[in-house]
Structure formats: C-alpha cells, structure tokens
Design a protein around this nucleic acid. Sequence first.
DNA 1: TACCAGGCATAGG
DNA 2: CCTATGCATGGT
Length: 294
Amino acid sequence: MEYEASNNTVRVTGISSFDLGQTLECGQCFRFTKDDENSYTIIAYGRVLHVAFDKDTFVLHPCTLEEFENIWMDYFDLNTDYEEIRERLSASDPVLKEAAAFAPGIRILNQEPWECMISFIISQNKNIPGIQQIIKNISERYGDRIRDGIYAFPTPEQLGRATKEDLRACKTGFRDKYIMAATEAVLSGRISLDELISIDTDEARKLLMSIPGIGVKVSDCVLLYSLRHRDVFPTDVWVRRIMQYFYFSGAEKNDAKEASINEIHTLASSKFGNNSGLAQQYLFHYARKLKIGL
DNA sequence: TACCAGGCATAGG
DNA sequence: CCTATGCATGGT
C-alpha cells in the first residue's frame, strides 16, 4: 500500500481486496450516503469524508496525511491482509468459497465503539432505513454541527442530557430506556468501552450484555464492528436463514428443524474460528443478495 | 387492515 | 437450555 497527500486529498494505491460498496453496504455501518457509482460520503469521528475509487486509486477528501494515518487507515482496516484470510476461509469451506468470491472486497470497519453500541441498540426490530433515520434524528438534536445540515453523532455527555420524551421525539420507540441505560453505564464509568478491546471476547460480551437492551446479537455486532473482536459471529435473521439453508437442512430441505443460535455459533466457531466475523460478513451479504428460501 | 423490520426482556416450560 | 409474546414506529 502506498499513499500521498496533496490539496487536502489523500490518494492510496496498492490495496487489494477492497470495494467501497461491498464494505459500506453490507450492514455494518449506518452513517453514509451513496453519491455516485463507487463514491460515498461518510460521517464518522466528527468529520465528513468523501471517498471514491478512481480506477485503482482510493481517494479521500477532505483529508490530511495525519488524518489518514491516525484515523482512516485504521477505520477501513487497511493494515490487515484480507487476501490471506479470504483464502483461508475459502479453502476451509465450499459455501464460504462461494460467498467470499461473491463479494471479495468486503472489509470490516473499525468504528467508534460508543456510536456503534447505540446504533445497534437502535437497530433491533427495525429495517436499515428506519435505523438511519433515528440515528440522524438523534445526531441533529444532540450532536455538534459539522457543517450545514450535517451533525456528528452525540457524545455520551451530550446524549446524557436527553430525557425519555426527547428520545421518543426522535422516534426511538421502546428503545428509549435502553439508550438511557447504555449512556448511564458509560457516563458512570461502570463500563469503559475502550477497555473491552483488550479483554477476552466472552468477558467483553458479558459486560455489554449487562446493559438492558443489549443481547447476544447486538453485543456481537459491537464486538466485531468496533471492538476488534474478529472471532464473533453476529447471527441475525439473514445469517440464520443462510446457515439453516447450507448447514442445517437435511436432504429433504423442509422437514429439518430450525437450528438454534447456540448451534449456529458452535458450528461457526468450529468451521471459521478466529475469522468468524469476516465469514459472517460474506454470508450476510450473500444471503441478502440471493434471497434464499423464504 | 394486518403484518413485518438485522432483537430483547420477560414469563413459563 | 428452549419457546411464546409484547413492544414503538413507519412502511407496504
């Protein structure tokens, strides 16, 4: 990988296994818009960033050399060798070979833990446009204005000022109490999200799940998308469907009983091991595009 | 109108 | 451990 900065723009070449659309649109990130073919605007780290691919060059703007090295290089996980992980997953399993070949440019973003946690609390029982709308409402009401009409995700202190009624006005619905509980856990210091990066996965998950409104699926999303635990396998309805279809249905497809989350996790762990997170991303994307069964 | 959306808490086997 | 139900809200 090589990069250079000029005119508040950074150009990166020599990245393999990276596609903007596949990475942003596989459901791990909510705050972006698609401006054009292979051109997106992202809001993160209190900044607005335009990203695009110009032939084989990854272009970021506005972006200084320091911002690229300190923030975005890690955000897009550019220091990880995805070629190697993808080959390992492909070789170990025929289904993954298909799924990975379908979207080989997926990377797992390293997002901000606080925003990620609140966003996935919001995500329960909502579709993606609905989730994006609520996050936008909350940011506009409590976050700092970055520039006209664009607001940063609020800090814990800022969101801590919200009352239940305020949150309801942002259309959070029954999630209002969960958001308040998570905010309180962070503000009080009971849970330090950054510390969850370096502790054992199961221990970190246990701590996250001590917050009401965070269950197995939401905690696994936070662990994978922001806390760098790549061995988890977030299992939502789509992943569940595709796992059922490929791994748990017998010869007669319909009479097999539904596999439980525990059974799916056990199978994922034994097949994909430390790379379960990326395997889940490939499978999620694959399932949504193919719309298998149901 | 009724039913669903990347779940979770709760009450009950 | 597993299963059934309600849940705010907006969209078909």
